[in-house]
Amino acid sequence: MSRRTVALALEPVWPAPRKQLPPRISRLDPFKATIDEILRVDLDAPHKHRHTVKRVFE
């Protein structure tokens, strides 16, 4: 056996841990206050008058 084969056999079995990426900024951040306000108002509204996800998106 060559030295390289022996060196590869002696290396750890587990792969190296992945590099941690910095957290991404959400695209919703500028709109979170508005969305929260819509949802708070919808808590008091009757079921049929609540906003759908499509309407909140628009």
Rank of each mutant, 00 (worst) to 15 (best):
S2W: 06
S2E: 11
S2Q: 08
R3T: 07
R3A: 11
R3Q: 08
R3I: 05
R3K: 09
R4W: 07
R4H: 08
R4N: 10
R4S: 09
R4G: 09
T5Q: 09
V6P: 00
V6E: 12
V6Y: 06
V6L: 14
V6G: 03
V6M: 10
V6A: 15
A7E: 15
L8W: 05
L8P: 00
L8M: 11
L8D: 11
L8K: 10
A9P: 00
A9G: 02
L10C: 10
L10M: 13
L10P: 00
L10A: 14
L10N: 08
L10I: 02
E11G: 00
E11M: 07
P12A: 01
P12L: 03
V13R: 12
W14C: 04
P15K: 09
P15L: 13
P15C: 11
P15Q: 12
A16D: 12
A16N: 07
A16F: 10
P17W: 01
P17H: 01
P17S: 04
R18H: 02
R18I: 00
R18P: 02
R18F: 00
R18V: 00
R18Q: 03
K19L: 07
K19R: 08
Q20T: 09
Q20G: 07
L21P: 05
L21A: 15
P22M: 02
P22T: 02
P23F: 04
P23G: 03
P23E: 10
P23M: 03
R24V: 05
R24G: 10
R24Q: 12
R24E: 11
I25V: 15
I25W: 09
I25E: 15
S26W: 05
S26M: 05
S26P: 06
S26A: 13
R27V: 12
R27M: 11
L28M: 14
L28I: 14
L28S: 13
L28G: 10
D29K: 04
P30D: 09
K32N: 11
K32T: 14
K32E: 15
K32R: 15
A33W: 03
A33I: 03
T34S: 14
D36N: 13
E37P: 00
E37V: 00
E37I: 00
I38M: 09
I38C: 03
L39F: 06
L39K: 08
R40G: 02
R40V: 03
R40N: 06
R40Y: 03
R40Q: 12
V41M: 04
V41L: 08
V41S: 03
V41P: 00
D42Y: 03
D42R: 01
D42M: 04
L43N: 06
L43Q: 14
D44V: 01
A45I: 01
P46W: 05
P46R: 09
P46H: 09
P46N: 07
H47L: 15
H47K: 13
H47R: 15
H47Q: 14
K48V: 12
K48E: 15
H49K: 14
R50Y: 04
H51S: 15
T52I: 06
T52L: 09
R55P: 00
R55D: 13
R55F: 03
R55S: 14
V56Q: 01
V56G: 01
F57R: 13
E58Q: 12
